[in-house]
Design a protein around this nucleic acid. Structure first.
Lengths: 260, 260
DNA sequence: CAGTGGTCTAGACCACCAA
DNA sequence: TGGTGGTCTAGACCACTGC
């Protein structure tokens, strides 16, 4: 199961290599390396946007070959947790980058282009989690949550109404000003101000009829069809960190999805 | 750019290796191998479900190392064109497999499970392509197309109404009986009966109000919200081969999407 | 048992980037 | 120029499948 591997490696004891100890079971070496790197990311040892050590460096630390480290990093890059830049290094992924701007917002106009949107925060307050929200975020019912309601405008026209729920513990102090003022993706702000990085999300889409309330905010007739997008976002370790309900006007825009 | 590579390789002249000749430009060896394999797939030399030659075999033919072939195959497997099975070989992917049954139909019930659906073909006829359809399928306007209309039922309840357009040339002879009778995915039938393999697709989602016609067929009130799913499917070489417009009832089901 | 994919190594060289 | 990721090789051994 293991190479002849000499005594120890790396710094303050902590991460030795493919090794028994209290370890769970068997898995390929590169998977174990991947897990070790993941732990560093979760722990925040390497922060979004920063470079991680070079492949050769990591190979030395972990006492494996460069190719093994490479395979671990390949998978992490494939999961959008790391970004490789030839000649420069490997970096911790962030939502601040241009080319992932629209990884989560899949609304395009009917020419197929993404459009910049303007935010209007209607509400941002601390409240208690409804049962449904608590379940999704794995909180106790009634526990504190931050609740945000906002409208996104494309070319000045309100097209998206969103309700966002966040664990109150982690997002303590989130304010309207903060939600409103930050330029760039909201998830980038979450990284900078709260140290929370969204890693993946599940979305459930439905067609619904606009309520009076929704119709008013989106400048529509009541009962007009709206695309309902319920998103549950996760950080590392599959921990749910955000529940978001969006209502999209799709009269001149659409939700684009690529099937592979 | 190249290893010391001896004279020729492989069978009847055709595919020599990383080589100048009339080749376009420079690319990594494994990319060139990938292209060669792709050409075989497109040509139908290796058919859906069949095994392709082993890695070592291909390495010998192409006169590269096994690792290089491996990397080429890795990418093709990542694109769902090939499937690796340890101990058995590498196979051309097909829509007949259990675990990709729901790669394209992303409708789940509200418990999050996929449900088996029953088909009811309402219409299957030869006609002329409307301008819009012709554009999508890259045909001339008015050119022959096969047109299918069907309803999908989940637990006996009609939930999806679909209109499908296919190039008349390629799908000549497609019949109602054929659409209706085949057990398993429609795309698997396309592979078996017409030699067409769908490789990827783009979908545009919108919320719309049900027309009288749609409402009738889906057992709904006119004006009820429906999820409109417009799908353009592609074969090899990014050639569009099917346009499909689906209307989904989402009162007890939803379209599920995973964002990575 | 032989054959196939899966892992791992060690070392060479290339392509890209920044100082 | 030196450092980083990217490609390629050759060979060893492991894990799984089926005869």
């Amino acid at each position: 199961m293991m190479p002849p591997a000499p005594p120890a490696a790396e710094n303050p004891a902590s991460d030795v290599v493919p090794d028994e100890g209290a370890a769970p079971a068997f898995s390929p070496l590169y998977q174990q390396i991947k897990t070790l790197i993941l732990q560093r990311l979760e722990a925040g040892d390497w922060k979004p946007g920063e470079a991680i050590p070079s492949e050769t460096d990591l190979a030395l630390r972990f006492r494996v070959s460069q190719g093994t480290v490479r395979k671990a990093i390949d998978e992490l890059a494939g999961e959008n947790l790391l970004i490789r830049r030839q000649g420069k290094g490997t970096f911790v992924a962030t939502h601040s980058e241009r080319h992932v701007q629209y990884r989560f917002l899949k609304l395009r106009n009917d020419s197929g282009e993404y459009e910049h949107s303007e935010r209007r925060v209607l509400e941002c307050r601390r409240s208690r989690a409804p049962a449904e929200v608590a379940r999704a975020l794995q909180l106790r019912s009634g526990e504190a949550v931050m609740q945000v309601r906002r409208v996104l405008l494309f070319s000045g026209i309100p097209r998206v109404l969103e309700d966002i729920w966040l664990p109150g513990q982690t997002f303590k102090g989130l304010s309207t000003a903060q939600m409103q003022a930050y330029k760039g993706p909201t998830y980038a702000m979450f990284e900078l101000d709260f140290g929370v990085r969204m890693v993946r999300a599940d979305e459930k889409l439905r067609a619904v009829a606009a309520s009076a309330d929704q119709a008013h905010l989106l400048d529509l007739a009541e009962g007009s069809p709206l695309l309902s997008v319920e998103r549950l976002s996760y950080t590392y370790n599959d921990a749910p960190m955000e529940l978001r309900r969006g209502f999209y006007r799709t009269d001149s825009h659409h939700y684009h999805n690529q099937l592979n």
